[in-house]
Design a binder for these strands. Structure first.
Lengths: 203, 203
DNA sequence: CCTCTCAGGTTGACACTGTCAACCATAGAC
DNA sequence: GTCTATGGTTGACAGTGTCAACCTGAGAGG
């Protein structure tokens, strides 16, 4: 085994980096091939470690997937938050946030599906990131309400409505179930903007 | 092996029924345990046949799952269509259809997730059922428009909007991502009705 | 009535997976 | 200068999807 000495060298070169490498590799496998293609052994292989090394960093496969999901959710959440801050009006910020949410789903459908799938084992990182995102959205809705661009009413409920349409349109589009009858196809972004227009008209 | 003779007897008792048995068993395993719990060998075991018998009816695991999804989609589609026909107003029918869609997602989240997941191998049954459902929804929207209860505009696009909110709210609720911040929780059904109210106000 | 086909079933094998157990090496605290 | 915990290793095991080869009896065709 020639790789043996390499592995030993790598081991002390990189220190704690292996854990991040594993997450990175797993994310790559997830993107091309879906969650079924993420196999612990292949992850180890591509990271240049043995088939059991991942168990030194993650309790089991679920834990690795949870780490992948948490990292992606945190990153995209931060990116959205930052982009939102650049916008002037609450209305524009709302549209931007939902647009980025949708773009994320369309660019990385497998990650999106993983993040918003059913989590048997719950990771505190995941729920924290999710709650933070929801809180941000509610803030945006409240601002839009004071701007008179959204109707009055419970902002939490209104935020849920906006998010539901963004999530639903994104999920349907990402899985190919949205514009199956070719003609009157509308992009998820257009649907969200339609909703905002209707809501403004109803305020 | 005592079951041997039984199996032989069963074989000629049931004729073609085995295929349906396999789908039934697979659906049961899907409901409790998710798609990961659906294993061809266990399906065969519970159906009382050998671990390879499923291959006489389905090309591979994906094909079995596609059959499960197609059957469930067709059944629920028919049930929704029938329920809709009992309603007087287009508005009530629309709410009913979305309500049943949501109830389906909440009662059988794993089936829902399977049906509306990513289909690498596409089954004609599946796409046919999906298109039929969308056509029905568009018809409902058009009727609601002539009733003046929905704003004018492309009915396909409006149908996509309504369906997106139903799908998104159902998916978020089924996966536990909807009302994570306890207080202002709204049920998916309420969100759909909220949307219909806003749309009526904006017409 | 005999034969032949073939759908539906069987056993056996293979590579691959998640996971457990036991062992190993070294960086760094004491 | 020894000890220990961390991150690594190999080996094993049961379970999985799938392929190949074989079997069996219901029913069509003569």
């Amino acid at each position: 085994m020639v790789e043996r000495s390499e592995a030993v060298v790598r081991h002390y070169d990189r220190g704690m980096g292996t854990r991040d490498d594993l997450i990175e590799v797993a994310t790559g496998l997830l993107d091309r091939g879906g969650v079924a293609a993420v196999t612990l052994r292949e992850v180890g292989r591509l990271a240049g470690v043995s088939h059991n090394a991942p168990y030194k960093h993650f309790a089991d496969k679920q834990a690795l997937l949870a780490a992948v999901a948490a990292r992606d959710l945190a990153r995209h959440g931060a990116a959205i938050e930052q982009a939102v801050r650049r916008k002037r009006s609450a209305r524009a910020a709302l549209s931007e946030a939902m647009g980025r949410y949708i773009a994320w789903a369309l660019e990385y459908p497998e990650r999106f599906r993983l993040v918003f799938g059913r989590w048997t084992v719950e990771s505190p990182e995941l729920t924290a990131a999710a709650e933070s995102a929801q809180a941000g959205l509610i803030g945006l809705v409240e601002a839009a309400q004071t701007d008179g661009v959204l109707p009055a009413g419970d902002p939490v409920r209104l935020a849920s409505l906006v998010r539901s349409v963004a999530h639903g349109a994104a999920d349907l589009a990402a899985t190919g179930h949205l514009s199956e009858s070719g003609k009157g196809h509308a992009s998820p972004q257009q649907l969200v903007d339609d909703l905002l227009v209707y809501l403004q008209a109803a305020s």
